[in-house]
């Protein structure tokens, strides 16, 4: 059970870590000052979540790895984040759509995980849920604003949907890890999370006058460590200090 919980915590922790990294790339480049503040804050929340989740993952694993060793010193295929979060920022519309598709998944997931039979995971979920509610409100409001704003903004955010929608199945990937944890009451049934996600997406898209792409093209593999080309470059940057100056205190 330990190794399953470890695996599951890596998925959650890596999602936060990699998306936190991506969002932090906006710092100083936002479309308005208020968004610079909002995006930096979201990134900060995500890095905080990654810290709690990876710290706990290290404890569960029991091999003496701490949150920094897990965050900075694994190889690319050992990262278990979904493909969605590692995708490039693109324009503000792409960043917002990526965030929305993710927040709409994370919100019901954390809502369920606060009832986890694992008390540590439940506590982390409770703290993260408060943050995720704000993230969801922020991203959903922007999706609606951009979708129902100008012709240009509508076109851009629809393009973002068309480009990112194929990664959504990866969010709901399950295997024997989830089955085992579900039996123990540690994680919720993914089907229910998927349904709630679909409901949010439909409601927000309807208000934003956006459409779900008609093709069924799907991309997944993130949870198994099979990533897109973008992750390697992201890690090269993120791991730079730890790789260039090994075994030092900072």
């Amino acid at each position: 059970m330990k190794e399953h919980l470890f695996e599951y915590l890596l998925r959650l922790g890596d999602d936060s870590l990699i998306l936190g990294h991506r969002v932090s790339e906006w710092c100083g480049h936002g479309p308005i000052l208020e968004e610079d503040i909002a995006l930096t804050n979201i990134s900060l929340d995500l890095i905080g979540q990654a810290t709690s989740l990876l710290k706990y993952a290290g404890e569960v694993e029991g091999k003496g790895r701490d949150e920094d060793q897990l965050a900075f010193l694994r190889l690319e295929h050992d990262y278990k984040n979904c493909l969605l979060v590692e995708q490039l920022n693109g324009d503000f519309g792409m960043t917002i759509m990526r965030q929305f598709l993710f927040d709409a998944y994370r919100l019901p997931l954390f809502e369920a995980l606060i009832h986890s039979s694992d008390s540590q995971l439940a506590a982390i979920a409770e703290k993260s849920l408060k943050e995720t509610k704000y993230h969801y409100r922020h991203s959903a409001e922007w999706v609606i604003r951009l979708g129902d704003g100008t012709e240009e903004s509508h076109e851009r955010i629809q393009k973002a949907v068309n480009s990112l929608f194929k990664y959504h199945v990866d969010l709901f990937f399950t295997n024997h890890v989830d089955d085992a944890l579900l039996k123990e009451g540690i994680v919720p049934e993914m089907k229910a999370i998927h349904n709630k996600w679909m409901e949010s997406v439909k409601n927000v898209f309807s208000e934003a006058t956006l459409e779900i792409p008609s093709n069924n093209w799907e991309q997944s593999g993130g949870r198994l460590g099979r990533h897109s080309e973008h992750l390697g470059l992201l890690l090269a940057e993120m791991q730079y200090m730890q790789r260039a100056y090994p075994n030092m205190e900072w």
Binding site: H29, G30, P31, I32, E35, D91, F92, G93, I144, R145, L146, D148, G149, T150, E152, S153, R156
Partner: peptide, 13 residues
Amino acid sequence: ENGEWVRAAANAF
């Protein structure tokens, strides 16, 4: 400049 369309959208909305 890159944020121009975002601000325009927010105003239009």
